Amino acid sequence: MNLTVNGKPSTVDGAESLNVTELLSALKVAQAEYVTVELNGEVLEREAFDATTVKDGDAVEFLY
């Protein structure tokens, strides 16, 4: 899956889609429990991480 992460191209191997929690784990995001996630310009509530799917071509920003 090809994404733009914090403005840079990134690839997650072996996945066509992941939820936000899985993406944080796959990318080994440090202190993931404290990060705010913006997906395609929309800031996500932490409670929505498990239910929100990240797909090929999406833009993700991790805000600390």
Rank of each mutant, 00 (worst) to 15 (best):
L3F: 07
V12T: 04
T4I: 13
N2Q: 12
N6I: 01
S25I: 15
M1C: 06
V60T: 02
S25Q: 14
K28P: 03
S17K: 09
Y64I: 11
S10P: 02
L18Y: 07
A32C: 14
V12E: 02
A59W: 13
L63Y: 15
K8C: 15
N19Y: 06
E47W: 12
E42V: 15
M1Y: 04
E42T: 13
L27P: 00
L44R: 02
K28D: 08
F49E: 00
T21W: 13
A48V: 09
T52G: 01
L44A: 02
V29S: 03
K8M: 11
V5K: 02
V5A: 03
T21E: 05
Y64K: 08
V54G: 00
D50C: 07
D58E: 03
N19K: 06
F62M: 06
D13I: 14
D13F: 15
L27Y: 05
N19P: 04
E16I: 13
A59L: 10
E33F: 08
A51G: 11
F49K: 01
K55D: 03
Y34T: 10
N40Q: 02
V35N: 03
Y34C: 15
N2I: 10
A32Y: 10
Y64P: 13
T21G: 05
E42Q: 14
E47M: 09
L18C: 10
V12L: 11
V5Q: 03
A59S: 14
E33K: 09
L39W: 03
Y64N: 11
G57T: 04
V29Y: 05
V35F: 09
R46T: 06
A48Q: 12
E16D: 11
V12R: 03
V37Y: 00
S10R: 15
D56C: 06
G41H: 05
L63V: 12
T36Y: 08
L18D: 01
D50G: 09
L39K: 02
T36I: 14
G41Y: 04
A48Y: 12
D56G: 07
V54T: 01
S25R: 15
N19H: 04
P9V: 09
Y34F: 12
R46V: 06
S10E: 13
E16A: 12
A51T: 15
V37C: 04
E61I: 12
A15I: 12
E45C: 13
L39H: 04
L39A: 01
T36N: 07
K8G: 05
V35P: 04
P9G: 06
E33P: 08
P9Q: 09
V29I: 13
T52Y: 06
T52E: 03
A15V: 15
Y34N: 09
F62H: 03
T21P: 02
V5T: 02
V20G: 01
V43A: 08
T11K: 14
S25E: 12
E22V: 05
V20C: 04
N2P: 02
A26P: 00
L3C: 05
K28W: 05
T52W: 05
G7L: 03
L24I: 09
V29M: 07
A51D: 11
V5I: 13
L44H: 02
L39Q: 00
T53K: 10
K55G: 05
E33V: 06
L23Y: 00
F62Q: 02
E45S: 13
Y34G: 08
Q31C: 15
L24E: 02
K55A: 06
E38Y: 15
A15F: 14
A48K: 12
L24K: 00
G7C: 08
T53Y: 15
K55V: 09
L3Q: 03
E45P: 13
T11M: 10
L23H: 01
A30T: 11
A32D: 09
Q31W: 15
T11G: 06
V35G: 02
A15P: 09
T4Y: 08
V37N: 00
T21Y: 08
V54W: 00
A51E: 10
V29Q: 04
F49N: 01
E47R: 09
T52S: 05
